[in-house]
């Protein structure tokens, strides 16, 4: 059955004589060594350094002092941090399902063979993923502008007054829209290619049994790509919790509605870059990393249990 957890599959391989395993244990490290070394350099060492930093406080006046876990205590009581976490949680609850459902729908549609111009559809939907952030700013600046942009033009042309997408109330949804726009294609491709390799004998058997298309989707296709769904969900959760680029981009246009503590990642950024509070920034990042890990782990466990 499908699982998102490779070790489970890896362990299917037959047990080997222990002498050989010892030999392999070194061989295995030989192959993963390069990845591990670079990973240690660019991820683990900075994280270790951050953990170290999080135990200190550096002031413009007064220099650096050891403060133990004070920064953590401060983070746990930091309203700005919790508000930002609440915001990305709300975002996560709405945007991720919407995005994944659209991606899934398109993937199923492409896979069904019932579309005209399938190849065109596939690349078109993937394209937004390739657009660099700088351009996205200009583009969405135009789309969302209620003064001179598309929204404004529509208002003028139709004599309506659409709500301002950059207002405090709507801006989170507007960010969600951009993220969805960017990543529908990415997730669609993951799902689509998962669908492509389901043995078609299964469909044929089902058709002979009188199952309709909808039944085939729910009974065969979806269970078969559960692994892809779980992976996509985990990476989307991490992505949502680390939401950064899009609010930063949109802030150029809505700088009052999007505060510099809008998301946890934005908050750590402004602490570190605007405020030179590297120690506290590191602390918030570590707390955030732990929270994200726990949630990703829970999702993975649930996905595994259902899939097993």
């Amino acid at each position: 059955m499908t699982t998102p957890q490779p070790p489970a599959t890896a362990e299917r391989s037959p047990a080997r004589p222990s002498a050989k395993r010892d030999r392999r244990s070194w061989t295995g490290w030989g192959f993963i060594g390069p990845f591990a070394a670079v990973f240690a350099l660019v991820f683990l060492a900075p994280i270790g350094y951050s953990v170290y930093l999080s135990l200190f406080r550096d002031q413009l006046i007064g220099g650096t002092t050891f403060v133990g876990l004070d920064n953590y205590q401060q983070a746990l009581q930091d309203d700005q941090f919790w508000a930002s976490l609440g915001r990305v949680s709300a975002f996560l609850a709405v945007q991720v399902p919407v995005m994944l459902l659209i991606a899934l729908f398109v993937a199923l549609a492409l896979d069904s063979g019932r579309l005209y111009g399938k190849d065109f559809f596939r690349i078109s939907i993937f394209l937004p993923y390739a657009v660099p952030a700088v351009v996205a700013t200009l583009m969405w600046g135009f789309m969302y502008g209620s003064q001179f942009g598309l929204v404004g033009d529509i208002n003028d042309a139709l004599g309506v007054s659409l709500p301002d997408p950059l207002s405090t109330e709507l801006v989170l949804a507007s960010i969600g829209n951009i993220v969805t726009w960017e990543f529908v294609g990415y997730n669609m491709l993951i799902f689509y290619s998962a669908l492509r390799v389901i043995p078609h004998s299964l469909y044929e058997a089902a058709e002979i049994d009188g199952a309709g298309q909808f039944r085939i989707v729910t009974a065969i296709k979806l269970p078969a790509i559960r692994g892809a769904l779980v992976i996509a969900t985990i990476f989307s959760i991490i992505g949502s919790f680390q939401l950064f680029n899009e609010p930063v981009i949109l802030r150029d246009l809505a700088r009052n509605a999007i505060t510099t503590d809008y998301t946890p990642n934005f908050y750590t950024y402004s602490l570190s870059f605007d405020g030179q509070q590297h120690n506290y920034s590191a602390t918030v990042a570590i707390v955030m990393g732990l929270i994200t890990m726990v949630i990703a782990y829970v999702v993975q466990l649930r996905g595994m249990r259902k899939g097993a």
Binding site: V284, G289, M293
Partner: peptide, 21 residues
């Protein structure tokens, strides 16, 4: 442990790691 460590490291917001890096 390898993949758990990888996922855990990825979960830490990158912007805070920028200055240490």
């Amino acid at each position: 442990a390898v993949f758990a460590v990888v996922i855990g490291a990825v979960a830490v917001p990158g912007t805070a790691l920028a200055v240490p890096t």
